[in-house]
C-alpha cells in the first residue's frame, strides 16, 4: 500500500512541476547565469552581451561584454512614444506599447531591425512570448481608458506577420504575466492573481485565483513566483501550479 502511495506521489511530481526554464522575461534568453531576471513590466532586458534599454520612444543598445564598462553602441527610434515594456526570446525583441506590440529582429544584436507591428486598441501593458505564441494583456490604466481589459494570444510563427488567434475578455484589469511550462500566471489587479492553463491556447482555462494578491507583475523562476503589488512582495511555491503555496511576504509600510 505504502509503495503505491509513494509511486502515486512521485507520479504527481512528474506531471506538475513548474518548469525551471520559465519564459519570464529575463536573462534566460541570454543563456547566461550571470544575468538576473526581471518581470514582464521591465524596460530592460539582456540578450547575449547586450543590454537593451527602453527610454521614452528610443531603444538603447549597450555592449556589456565587460559588465563594469558598458558601451552605448546604438540608439534606435522606435517611432512610438508609448513603449512600456521589452521582452527578449533570444531571437527577437518584443515591445509592449500603448497601441500594440512591436517586433524587432536580433540577427544583428547591436542593431535590432524592425520586423512588424501588431496593432490593438489604445491600451496599456506588456507582452510575454513562449514558442510561437505571444501573450499580450491590455488593461485600462487611467491614461489608457479607451482600451479594453483582455488577454490576447498572437501567433508569431511569422514574426513579420503576427496574427491574432484569440481574445479572452473575462478579466478585470490584467497586467504583468509570467509563463512557466503550460501555465500563465497573470496579475489581474483587484481581481487577484490568476493561474491559467495555456496547454490549448485556443481554450485557455482559468484554474485558480489568489483573490487577496493584488498585483501588477510577477517573475517565475526556480519553482518560485515572486509577485509585486499593492500590499508588498509575495513569494509562492509553484511546484504544483494548481496548488500554490505561500512562502513569504515583504510588507509595504
Amino acid at each position: 500500500m505504502n509503495k503505491i502511495l509513494i509511486f502515486f506521489v512521485l507520479f504527481l511530481f512528474t506531471i506538475v512541476a513548474c518548469d525551471k526554464d520559465s519564459s519570464s522575461p529575463a536573462s534566460e534568453s541570454g543563456m547566461n547565469n550571470n544575468t538576473g531576471s526581471a518581470g514582464s513590466m521591465s524596460k530592460f532586458t539582456f540578450n547575449g552581451n547586450y543590454l537593451y534599454v527602453v527610454q521614452g520612444q528610443f531603444l538603447q543598445v549597450y555592449n556589456v561584454v565587460n559588465a563594469a564598462s558598458p558601451v552605448l553602441k546604438n540608439t534606435i527610434d522606435l517611432k512610438n512614444n508609448a513603449v512600456e515594456t521589452i521582452f527578449s526570446n533570444g531571437t527577437n525583441l518584443f515591445f509592449g506599447t500603448q497601441n500594440g506590440m512591436l517586433i524587432y529582429g536580433l540577427s544583428n544584436p547591436q542593431s535590432p531591425d524592425y520586423l512588424s507591428t501588431y496593432t490593438h486598441l489604445v491600451s496599456c501593458d506588456p507582452v510575454v512570448v513562449s514558442g510561437n505564441l505571444a501573450y499580450v494583456t491590455l488593461s485600462t490604466g487611467t491614461r489608457c481608458n479607451r482600451g479594453n481589459n483582455q488577454l490576447e494570444v498572437i501567433d508569431i510563427s511569422d514574426v513579420r506577420n503576427p496574427v491574432l488567434l484569440r481574445t479572452y475578455t473575462s478579466f478585470d484589469n490584467p497586467k504583468g504575466m509570467a509563463i512557466s511550462g503550460n501555465y500563465l500566471y497573470l496579475c489581474d489587479a483587484m481581481e487577484g492573481f490568476k493561474v491559467l492553463d495555456i496547454t490549448d491556447p485556443m481554450d485557455i482555462q482559468e484554474k485558480s485565483t489568489l483573490p487577496s494578491v493584488i498585483a501588477f507583475d510577477v517573475i517565475a523562476k526556480n519553482n518560485i513566483l515572486t509577485i509585486t503589488g499593492k500590499d508588498g512582495v509575495y513569494q509562492y511555491d509553484c511546484t504544483d501550479p494548481l496548488n500554490l503555496k505561500f512562502i513569504s511576504k515583504i510588507n509595504v509600510q
Binding site: 526581471a38 521591465s42 508588498g232 515583504i250 509595504v252 509600510q253
Partner: peptide
Amino acid sequence: VQVAGKIYI
C-alpha cells in the same frame, strides 16, 4: 518599502 515597484532577481 513604501510602494512596491518593479521586482528583479
